[in-house]
Amino acid sequence: MNQMTEIKPLTRKDFESDQDVRWCPGCGDYALLAQVQKLLPTLGIPREHFAFISGIGCSSRFPYYMETYGMHSIHGRAPAIASGLKLARPELSVWVVSGDGDSLAIGGNHFIHAMRRNIGLKIILLNNRIYGLTKGQYSPTSEFGKKTKTTPLGSIDRPFSPVSVALGAGATFVARTVDSDHPHLLDTLRRAAEHPGTAFVEVLQNCIVFNDGAYNALADKETRDDARLLLRDGQPMRFGKDGTKGIRMRGFEPEVVTVGEGGVTEADLAVHDESAANGGLAFFLSQFAAPLPVPLGVFRAVEAPVYEQLSTGLADDARAKRGQGTLEKLFNSGDTWTID
């Protein structure tokens, strides 16, 4: 009589590889690694159905530390490689882990086309506003005026907003979180994992060596409530220690107001709508700059046709009309030439 083998539920340890983690002590990448390893066992997906693809950079060492399939690929090309894998094996849960330099500089073209295609990838961009692996050069997200080894007099480039780039490319799920808030990070990653199509998450991440303190205002308990705006779908945009501050619109101009002062009530505040079809509100929020708070959470989450499903449909239609193809028929079809 055959005995059925009991299938044990996965745990975080099942996703921890035997590789030594080689990030600097205190790096924000550790927080992402811990939360991803905590999340995956809860998704109900077999471990062999996960794949992590990365490019080049500190964050791109991520696949070594995951006990899953994965690939440490080439600079900026992780979305292209991950797209090919997802098309070939649509049943897999394919994740891309990248950095602000990897995705928004040399990889910018691959990044935006992954967004517009809405292929089922989960793309995590760790944004520390600096090139860490190559020792502290300014990156596409470095602040205007940033002094680095390659901009000793200060950068004159205007920085990208990764969220704005993703939204501008038509991404159907766009979110932002921060490495220091582990519950928010985990919840945001869960939302991304459950989204069909491309899910993009920007993680504001501290580089303790080359850009330490870039996000102190968002991490410090004394300042974070006033520095960040937690986006909640269908809820007024309130922030501050007691939730007394809010965002009110004056035409197309946002302003910070205090509820209860000057006749301001909650009804005067802007309301977040992550499912707005045109994405205008999401893009508007992605452009917030000081003295406005930094929006964190899901900017946009909408449904749209998923690329790998469309691709599979095309293949099925072709087989239905022409039958199952073979390489031999393909090689000998159409015009041929004989080369002496």
Rank of each mutant, 00 (worst) to 15 (best):
T150N: 13
T172V: 14
V302T: 10
H49F: 06
L230G: 09
E222Q: 14
R116H: 15
N332M: 07
A267V: 07
P196H: 10
F111K: 01
L296I: 07
D100M: 00
P291F: 04
T134M: 13
A219K: 12
A214R: 04
L92P: 09
L285I: 13
C24G: 01
M4I: 15
V203W: 00
W337H: 12
R47I: 08
G120Y: 14
A290K: 14
T244R: 14
T338E: 07
L269P: 09
D20W: 08
M4A: 14
P183V: 02
L10M: 03
I7D: 13
P152I: 12
P25I: 03
A192W: 12
L185G: 02
A34C: 08
R77S: 09
I45F: 05
D212I: 01
A301G: 06
V264M: 08
Y64W: 11
L104T: 00
A270L: 15
S54W: 05
F62A: 10
R47A: 11
N127F: 04
S59A: 06
H182E: 13
A166H: 11
C27W: 05
C207L: 01
G99Q: 03
T326F: 13
P293W: 03
S103A: 08
A169F: 05
Y65M: 02
A34L: 08
G170D: 12
R61E: 10
E6W: 00
S275G: 06
G101H: 00
M4P: 06
A82D: 10
D335N: 04
L121S: 07
S98N: 01
E274Y: 04
E255Y: 09
G101Y: 00
E202H: 02
F331L: 13
A82W: 08
W23S: 04
V165C: 02
G145L: 06
G280D: 15
Y69C: 04
V294G: 01
W95N: 00
G101R: 00
R238K: 14
M237D: 03
L269N: 10
E16T: 13
V94P: 06
A193M: 14
A267T: 09
L310G: 14
W23G: 06
L310Y: 12
P152C: 12
D340M: 12
G136E: 06
S139T: 10
V165H: 04
P183K: 03
Q137F: 03
K122G: 11
K86W: 11
P295D: 02
G145R: 05
